[in-house]
Write a protein that binds this DNA or RNA. Structure first.
Length: 430
DNA sequence: AGCTTGAAGCCCAGTCATAT
DNA sequence: ATATGACTGGGCTTCAAGCT
């Protein structure tokens, strides 16, 4: 590469070093299956032991068929692939076993776990180590070595402490589980990849009573530094803080040049304090309620309301009447109804208030995931529309700042959780 | 008509932050 | 500790306007 571009190249390399594929010498990767289903294998009576070499089946597998009657599918289920292109059996077995043994499924959590294990797999391939390499001497065991590598990476600033901590925890959890589920040979149980440790953490209950909680930990845990003391005011570098009056004015002014749905999304956020997740999962029908004496719509959100909140927490939003009105008008516009027609639910009031140009929600609701798991609903919709839209899970990432001048960018960036007022200088959005 | 270009919309990987 | 939401930056696809 030409030396003129030295600086740019260096910056690029530096950015790359933070990425897993660059930290290790390994081609291992993780993919996502859009629709993962459990199936039961049934062996057919035609191929019994009396007919072990089945001419019809060159793979040597007895004739079989899959029973796909299991309820629903799991969207975006991760699969780990080794550098040589083959699936990583034990890792994937762990993931599916975990799925089978739990009553709920959150795709992002599985993705996160798989990504941590992917980092581990890459480490193993890079070092040429087996995941069951457990000699007598603790310091030589893979798990201990991996921990050391993680700490080094933290020291080098390649990953944050919290990431390193989460990684080692995911790996320990992996070993715990495969031993517990007996996914590996019983003889190997003696190897001791780590040691169990009891920890106590002091918390204060909602009623102010101090409690000591016993927590199961392990000797390889990487401790994250204690939380900052929370002062009344927040040090603004790197922390969240409310917008100043001036910033709010600037934001409202610059929003006037933005698209209508962005205006409404931001107004909603600004005047109710709702999260992106709640705004994104708002349906038209939710705004049909009656206003209270002060002209507000009291909108319950959280578990059981179809409006999602973090962890399903129940609360109530106070939506100003004028905003309710504007939203309803917006929902009746031709453009918006066109988007609904392109969407999964079609042109009904149960549909999202905010849809992208392509009819995707800004935030995929838990309800939609349920509806899609229920084969009947999605089959019906697919038939009606003549096109089976594939599921994509949106998590608000589609809401980006508009390119409406640097002043506007700065403020919009602020509202997106960046407190560094100078950060707009870092990069132009595209 | 076919090609180029740029904006908009979107998806993804990786990492950090927060709630309980 | 653990589950899961939030944020950033890279990059792909689609569409339409301008050009050949």
């Amino acid at each position: 590469m030409d030396t003129t571009f030295g600086v740019a190249a260096m910056a690029q390399n530096q950015a790359k070093c933070r990425r897993g594929e660059a930290r290790y010498e390994s081609k291992a990767r993780r993919i996502l299956l859009p629709e993962f289903r459990f199936v039961t294998t049934r062996f057919l009576s035609t191929s019994t032991l009396s007919n072990p070499t089945n001419d019809f089946n060159p793979d040597g597998l007895p004739e079989h068929e899959f029973d796909e009657s299991h309820e629903g599918y799991y969207p975006n289920f991760p699969v780990l692939i080794q550098g040589n292109g083959e699936p990583w059996d034990i890792g994937n077995l762990y993931l599916t076993q975990k799925l089978a043994s739990e009553h709920k499924y959150e795709s992002r959590t599985y993705r996160a776990i798989a990504d941590h294990l992917l980092d581990y797999l890459r480490y193993l391939e890079d070092e040429g180590l087996d995941y069951l390499h457990f000699p007598k001497l603790n310091q030589l065991k893979v798990t201990y070595q991996y921990r050391r590598r993680l700490v080094d990476q933290v020291q080098a600033g390649e990953v944050s402490v919290s990431t390193a901590s989460a990684r080692i925890n995911a790996v320990i959890q992996f070993y715990r589980s495969i031993m517990h589920w007996k996914l590996i040979d019983e003889d190997l149980f003696m190897l001791e990849p780590f040691k169990d440790v009891q920890r106590y953490i002091n918390t204060i209950t909602d009623y102010g009573i101090p409690r000591s909680l016993r927590v199961k930990s392990h000797n390889l845990a990487i401790t994250t530094p204690r939380k900052q003391p929370q002062a009344e005011y927040i040090y603004d570098d790197g922390e969240l803080r409310p917008l100043t009056m001036q910033e709010q004015e600037l934001l409202l002014k610059s929003l006037l040049q933005s698209s209508r749905e962005y205006q409404l999304i931001f107004y909603f956020a600004l005047f109710t304090g709702a999260r992106t997740q709640s705004i994104g999962t708002l349906r038209i029908k939710h705004l049909k309620g009656r206003l209270d004496g002060d002209g507000y719509l009291r909108l319950p959100i959280g578990m059981g309301t179809e409006i999602d909140t973090k962890k399903g927490k129940r609360m109530q939003l106070l939506v100003p009447g004028w905003l309710v009105n504007d939203l309803l008008i917006y929902s009746k516009s031709q453009e918006v109804s066109k988007r609904r027609i392109r969407s999964y639910y079609g042109d009904i009031e149960d549909n999202y208030m905010f849809l992208t140009l392509n009819g995707n929600p800004y935030y995929t609701s838990k309800k939609e995931l349920l509806d899609r798991r229920d084969g009947q609903v999605s089959r019906y919709v697919g038939y009606e529309e003549g096109v089976h839209r594939t599921l994509t899970i949106q998590d608000g990432g589609t809401i980006r700042r508009a390119d409406a001048g640097s002043e506007c960018n700065t403020v919009i960036e602020l509202t997106m959780g960046r407190s560094d007022i100078f950060s707009s200088a870092r990069s132009s959005s595209r």
